[in-house]
Amino acid sequence: MATETHEAAGHAAEAAGSAGMPQLDFSTWGNQIFWLIVTLVVIYLILSKVALPRVGAVLADRAGTIANNIAAAEELKQQARDAEAAYEKALANARAEAAAIVEATRAEAAEKLKAATARADEQIAAKAAEGEAAIAEIRAGAMEAAETVARDTAAEIVTALGFSAPEGEIAGAVSARLKG
């Protein structure tokens, strides 16, 4: 098989007089190295002069745009946050104001209520005093009438029993009894 392989690979190697492996055919190395160097130099020049600056510029450009957009977005976000804060503040103010109004109204109402209660109390007290006075008067009247009746009755009884007594004595005795 080896000889076959030799023959097979041989038709190019024959001229060069090398063994079966084209890689080890040193007669072609000069050619390959020459064209390789030409290729590498051409690629290097194209890349370093045209392609790489262009791609680098595009990438830098894009990075700049993205950074700008992010900054703008950040700014808008900040604005939104400010607006929200202002709104919150206004809301809080309004709420505080409403609470103050409610408080004031409540105090006023309480004040009025208290005044009305006091006036009503006063009237009630006056009425009660008036009533009291009337009752006392009635009671005094009744007491007096009762004393008179008792004195008269006592005098009558004394007389009916056949005794006589001075006017003043009977009256003093009745008064003392009534008091006692």
Partner: peptide, 8 residues
Amino acid sequence: ALLLMFAV
């Protein structure tokens, strides 16, 4: 292996 096969 290649060297043995083809170059030796």
